[in-house]
């Protein structure tokens, strides 16, 4: 494995002495930025869609909204996220005449994409909350919306937190395709190191390890959050 030592040395040279690590840090920052903000957007969109989906359907407006949401989910679950990125960056935004940095486009696309998935997670969460909770809220004179936001959705989020954590982890990993539209993430950083040292084994190995560590930290945070939300529960 003397060969391997040499490879590590080469990697270190570019990584440390030629300031490769600044690129890695930027990549890390962007990866996390896209995943976290994307998930936040996804949760907001997903919650709204889920509420529309569980709405009683005797009003026409509810049926129209339901149709729109069904179309949205079909659209964003029916195409790969890479395709969505490319379409957004090279088709939709130029057609609309909007000039936006690649990173923001990525955040937006990942948010919209994750919204479609979170909506189904959230819907199952809302359906898992005892219907008596909604009834009790309505019986004391609170509106459907207030009861939904103050009683049902908080309990739904608690129920779906493990699944939501899954979505976050998936999102962290999926961000590795943002280089398709020129955003600088971890892949771009390690690819830079690789191409400058003509040696790809070590950089990609380190990249994989960083992803594993990121996901492990995310999983830990989710566990901590779950435990703090469980304080109203008997299952401690």
């Amino acid at each position: 494995m003397g060969n391997f030592d040499k490879k590590v040395e080469k990697f270190w040279e570019i990584f440390y002495e030629h300031n490769g690590y600044t690129k890695v840090l930027t990549g890390l920052e962007n990866t996390l930025y896209i995943a976290i903000v994307g998930l936040a957007i996804g949760i907001i969109i997903g919650t709204l869609i889920a509420i529309v989906k569980v709405l009683p359907k005797y009003k026409r407006i509810a049926r129209i909204l339901d149709g729109i949401c069904t179309f949205y989910v079909a659209l964003f679950r029916g195409t790969p996220v890479v395709v969505q990125l490319l379409v957004a960056y090279y088709v939709a935004l130029p057609l609309l005449g909007i000039n936006m940095p690649a990173l923001n486009v990525c955040v937006l696309v990942f948010g919209l994409n994750s919204g479609a998935y979170v909506s189904e997670i959230m819907r199952s969460g809302i359906l898992s909350v005892d219907p008596g909770q909604m009834e009790a809220g309505r019986a004391v004179g609170l509106s459907y919306g207030v009861t939904m936001m103050k009683i049902v959705v908080p309990q739904a989020i608690k129920n779906i937190l493990p699944t939501l954590g899954n979505e976050f982890i998936a999102l962290i990993k999926e961000t590795s395709v943002v280089s398709f539209v020129g955003a600088a993430d971890l892949y771009v950083a390690f690819n830079y190191i690789g191409s400058n040292s003509y040696e790809f084994m070590v950089p990609y190995l380190v990249m994989a390890m960083i992803y594993i560590v990121l996901v492990a930290i995310a999983a830990l945070l989710i566990r901590v959050m779950e435990r703090s939300l469980r304080k109203s529960d008997r299952r401690n």
Binding site: D130, G132, E135, A136, R138, A139, I151, Q155, S232
Partner: peptide, 22 residues
């Protein structure tokens, strides 16, 4: 209906206290 329901208290078989509130 919300305005009128505030003047009618209702108690359920299954209590239905809000689980996420003290």
């Amino acid at each position: 209906i919300n305005v009128h329901r505030r003047r009618m208290g209702m108690v359920f078989q299954q209590f239905n206290l809000f689980n996420n509130k003290t």
